[in-house]
Nucleic acid binder design. Structure first.
Lengths: 235, 235
DNA sequence: GACTACAAACTTGTAGACAATACCGTAGGC
DNA sequence: GCCTACGGTATTGTCTACAAGTTTGTAGTC
């Protein structure tokens, strides 16, 4: 693993990062494909990189493991997870259902003020896309979907969606063929229009189409060989 | 918290329990309503009860927190979570969708040998129900659903369903009105029949009905006041 | 008499050290 | 020449001690 792949652009900070900040940085490194599936994540190495003790690293890794981003091998360490094609299908299928549920429940209760907030978010997405700020684009495009869950306020759906989006980011990082990062802001805008019009059915349809676009942009048919499959390939 | 509520029936073991064993015991205590929502879970106290150090307790609590069973309050400790009525709706809704997906994918590939395994499982459920072995009944009724996911072999759906079943157990523990524990074996048997017949549609229908039965057995309309709602009640 | 500021006790958060386990290279035997 | 057994090295798993934060009780003041 290249140490530079985890150090943030804005340089070293004074305070030691919290375990969730560490998790976020590792997550971003995975989503940006700087950390490839199969990469070993040694605790001591990470502890040195982030300037914290191993205990905090273990916390962060445990969190990432529960989100399915890293795999914890007992007594043998952690590696960046390598989702299978089948798993990818399940994840996107589930995400579609959960996001439709969110839309369905959010539509009748959303306020004009919240609509405005969402539009601002999409504007930030556009700005980041035009500036080619890859980290921001990835974070913001997931952030739009998270915002919908947060507006709804259901703790369960929020944490479930966070989990699903993380997994989707990993999947797209593995199976996406080109530079086209996550979802585009135009379809997000369209979803907001439906929400503003109070048309839950239309919003759900657009959301479904939107997520289908992401799915179809993946090479799920191609069998991408990844590091952890090495044994199977050569065995 | 009563210490006795966590000690297992079969007495103290020689070896110290692993963090997942500790998590399981706490989970069971919650599912059996021995630990009520809002109960504080002090690390040192738990460490003494299970005869391990605090580090292992923290692991167990972190795992339970990611399943939504306990709530981690930074610098203030952990309490047994108190799901709201709205959250309960979301959880059951999502569980229905996930279990239907499992059934849908499992039906065309299930083998007679696996059918036989499932029938054996239901037989164990019946035996436990007749013997009034509450712990076993709770574990086995959830176990049936887990078995379906495990037969399918999708890591994602397995971990997702484990999460959902845990949350459902907590919800039923909070909102169920009487002694009727989780799901009955008869409907499980019916699901197996549909699987054996290769009729995915029927199996999905039965599963949906089955889960609806659990939902309707809850007092979701009644506002059960729980400790963490104290402020809202008195404020 | 009620409110605010302070102090003590308790609980969690963190770090560092030690023990257990798994992997890799080497030597010996078949 | 290949396989197996052994030992060194590296990495994870666990525990104990200390630091930081929060809550609770108490005294002083308005």
């Amino acid at each position: 693993m290249n140490d530079a792949s985890l150090t943030p652009a804005h340089g070293a900070t004074d305070k030691p990062p919290t375990s969730s900040e560490i998790g976020e940085r590792i997550w971003l490194a995975i989503a940006e494909r700087r950390l490839r599936p199969g990469t070993r994540l040694k605790e001591e190495q990470l502890a040195e990189i982030f300037g914290v003790s191993r205990a905090r690293i273990r916390q962060a890794l445990a969190g990432l493991a529960s989100e399915g981003l890293v795999q914890l091998l007992p007594n043998r360490g952690s590696v960046v997870a390598a989702p299978t094609v089948e798993e990818a299908g399940d994840v996107f299928f589930t995400r579609k259902l959960v996001e439709e549920r969110i839309i369905e429940r959010l539509t009748p209760r959303i306020t004009p003020r919240q609509i405005a907030e969402l539009r601002k978010h999409v504007a930030r997405e556009r700005a980041a896309a035009e500036a080619d700020a890859v980290s921001d684009v990835i974070r913001l495009s997931g952030g739009f979907h998270m915002s919908l869950a947060e507006l709804l306020g259901s703790e369960f759906l929020i944490s479930t969606l966070r989990d699903l989006i993380s997994r989707c980011s990993l999947i797209t990082a593995v199976y996406r063929d080109s530079a086209h990062y996550n979802c585009g802001p135009d379809e997000h805008s369209e979803i907001i229009d439906c929400l503003a019009a109070g048309d839950a059915g239309a919003a759900m349809r657009v959301m479904r189409t939107h997520l289908d676009h992401i799915t179809t942009s993946l090479d799920l048919d191609v069998e991408r060989q990844i590091e952890s499959d090495l044994k199977r390939v050569l065995g």
